[in-house]
Design a binder for these strands. Structure first.
Lengths: 331, 331
DNA sequence: CTGAAAGCGCTTACAG
DNA sequence: CTGAAAGCGCTTACAG
């Protein structure tokens, strides 16, 4: 690797003290412009990069941000986590921080505990949050700086979230304005905060238009294809005119089921989904979606944590926008 | 965060030297079993965890592994990278290492340069490799320890790969044995090593059976839906009896196109794809696939790097297995 | 404006 | 078996 050059080497070579070299790079402390230029020039020439680890030790910082990614994700969440990670990384890098990955489940916080107790990270970002979240409890108890992506249900926790409530309300509203009345909803685990926010938005739309909520058209905890197909059958029996799928994996199952039964979209029933992701990308007909900029939420979460670490005050909850895209499936 | 307890605190509390405490934890150097137990017990009780950063500085190690993830991935690659990352993380953690993420493109190696030159990582893993790969060149020049996932084209580079050549050969062979003869292939960028390995496997299958390779049925660099749909049209004109899709995003476009044209699978044409991922998960009919254990490749790559870092000799190329699953789409 | 020294939290020859 | 001291590569009061 060719022995890395250190601050001592630079100092000796230039006939100055390490202090001076350090000051030249940090810009802190008094130093003449002349020597600073001289030092800078030499560092540039020799392509000297200070060792961040040593720098961190001296300042009691690591410049690392721990990101905990759930291990028990569904396949439908992968692109979400991935995009989020890319956003996180980009923002972190631009502030000189790095992302250290931890993979955890709600009942196995081993990785999280490791990085928060062995001094490897300055703060933590939780990529997902549960209503009863052990990671949140741990971090709160340890008084470790952290922010969560998603609404956490705990107050006094810094949260970043797309406005699922508003988004789902607006989507539902637009469907209601198209004279659809019996709109069914198929969603995932009730243990996730997003699920309940979305359902509230859905209900709020009906409430806002003073339209009576149809009975028994909300299907939650639908986490496997069999259940979902059964839900679709049931929805048909009940004469719904539209189905909102709360994620695109669910939507994919629904679409397959409809094809199997020779039910036409949008002629026989309208379909809307969340996330304009790969699964639905090339579907014919194009699917109406409520979508979110996932990289943006990663960036915002990261910036918020860095603000906290550097001592700024931050908002308790930050809401980000959403986008409703009406396409052929609800025409 | 409750002031972390240090080795000095432990030493003082126990009335021994820091040296002794250090030896008790590491097991290196002579130390009486009695005092070692005493120290261990105290550390356990106080839940003392040594600061890895300081430990690293003293040993000139970081216990960090840099993972570079391409920024210019297609959506179809996401679940691949994600699973790979999970495998990497798991193996790293089990050896006390952490994963530090870098997102790079072939023309912007900024993040990689940062972590290799500021001493933040001990070694690097490249999640993907190009035929003309700048990251590989850089790492080679810097003599920085690294391993690549995928075949790199450069020799003297440590590579971990699923055996795409063998896999594709076997898949093609099985299709040939089903009396299919005019098998078309739709694939991605020729700049990726995998693409060429797979094509070689495809050709080898024909060669091995002494069957003449059909003319003009190989479509590469098909990176957008328009091209792919055009390829499908062309494939039909040429009277192919089967299409092998080199990834599942391509397959998804192909399936949609076939549905649009009312072409039945497997009645009118057979279909096979690579990766048994989310996109094809619930397709009707079920799709024949050549699939790979992606978490495993992550684990293997990580273990190999760690071996290198700890001074063991490792194989230049490690091939991992694959699985051909025949399903309804080629029946 | 500049530097010697102590310190960040560990490890490891070296000496006893 | 145990410890004082130097060192990993930096930063930062403190003194001049």
């Amino acid at each position: 690797m060719g022995k890395n050059i250190t601050i001592a080497d630079v100092a000796e070579e230039l006939g100055v003290s390490k202090t001076t070299v350090s000051r030249a790079m940090s810009g802190k402390g008094r130093i003449s412009e002349a020597t600073r230029q001289r030092v800078k020039a030499y560092m540039e020439e020799k392509n000297y990069k200070p060792n961040i680890i040593a720098q961190g030790l001296a300042k009691s910082k690591t410049y690392n941000i721990g990101v905990v990614m759930p291990s028990d994700y569904g396949i439908e969440d992968m692109s979400y986590f991935h995009n989020c990670l890319v956003g996180l990384q980009e923002m972190a890098a631009s502030y000189g921080y790095d992302i250290v990955l931890a993979v955890c489940s709600n009942n196995d916080l081993g990785q999280l505990k490791r990085i928060t107790s062995n001094g490897k990270v300055d703060g933590v970002i939780l990529m997902r949050t549960l209503i009863e979240d052990e990671a949140v409890k741990l971090l709160l108890k340890q008084e470790f700086p952290f922010v969560v992506i998603g609404i956490s249900g705990y107050n006094n926790v810094i949260q970043i979230e797309h406005n699922h409530f508003e988004g789902c309300r607006e989507l539902t509203l637009m469907l209601l304005m198209k004279k659809l009345r019996r709109i069914a909803v198929i969603g995932g685990s009730e243990a996730h905060m997003v699920t309940s926010s979305r359902i509230k938005g859905y209900k709020a739309a009906y409430g806002g238009m003073d339209i009576k909520l149809p009975d028994g058209l909300i299907y939650l905890n639908q986490d496997n294809p069999i259940m979902i197909e059964r839900a679709v059958d049931d929805i048909f029996l009940k004469g719904a005119d539209c189905i909102i799928c709360m994620d695109d994996a669910i939507c994919s199952v629904v679409l397959n089921k409809l094809r199997k039964e020779d039910i036409e979209v949008p002629a026989d029933i309208k379909i809307a989904s969340f996330f304009d992701s790969m699964i639905l990308k090339n579907n014919v007909p194009a699917i109406t979606t409520l979508s979110f900029d996932v990289q943006e939420i990663g960036k915002t979460a990261c910036k918020t944590l860095i603000d906290i670490l550097e001592g700024s005050r931050v908002k308790n909850i930050t809401y980000l926008g959403y986008k409703v895209e009406l396409k052929e499936s609800t025409r």
